[in-house]
Simulated scan of single mutants.
Amino acid sequence: MDADPKRTVAELLQSAELLYDLGQVPDARAEADAALRLDPLDPDANAMAAACALADNDPDEALVYAGAALARTPGHRRAMITRGYALADAGRRDEAMQAAASLLELDRTSWLHHVHYALITRRAGAAQPALDAAWNAVNLAPDQPRTHRALAAIAEDLGMDDLAKRSRRAAADLDPGGAAAFAEALPPEARRVHRRWVDADRDDPRWREKIGSGGLFGGALGRSILLGLAVVFAVPALLGTGMDGGARLFFAAVAAAAWVGWFTVLRRHRNPE
Rank of each mutant, 00 (worst) to 15 (best):
P205N: 10
L112W: 13
K165Y: 10
G125W: 02
R202A: 13
A234M: 03
D42R: 09
Y20V: 09
A126D: 08
D157G: 08
V193K: 06
A237R: 05
M48V: 04
R195M: 10
G177V: 07
G75V: 07
A200F: 01
L38Q: 08
G67A: 04
D4E: 04
L151D: 01
A252G: 12
T73F: 14
A130F: 14
P272S: 01
N136F: 06
L174I: 15
A118C: 13
F217C: 00
A190F: 06
A247G: 12
R108K: 11
W262I: 02
P142V: 07
G215M: 05
A34I: 00
G125L: 04
R202L: 14
R72V: 15
H76G: 03
R208V: 15
A237V: 06
L63C: 02
I81V: 15
I81L: 11
A53V: 03
L227T: 03
A200P: 01
R202P: 03
W207E: 09
R92K: 13
A183Q: 09
G177D: 13
D39F: 04
D39T: 08
A49C: 06
G67N: 02
G222Q: 01
R92D: 15
Y85W: 00
A152V: 05
P205C: 12
G91S: 10
A53T: 03
D60F: 13
D175R: 00
R223D: 06
V235S: 04
P176R: 03
P129N: 09
L87N: 06
I154Y: 00
S110N: 06
A101V: 10
G159P: 11
R92S: 15
G240Y: 11
P129A: 06
A28S: 14
A47W: 09
M1L: 09
L18Y: 14
L18F: 15
R192T: 02
T264S: 13
W207C: 11
G23P: 01
P40Q: 02
P187Q: 11
L104W: 10
V260P: 09
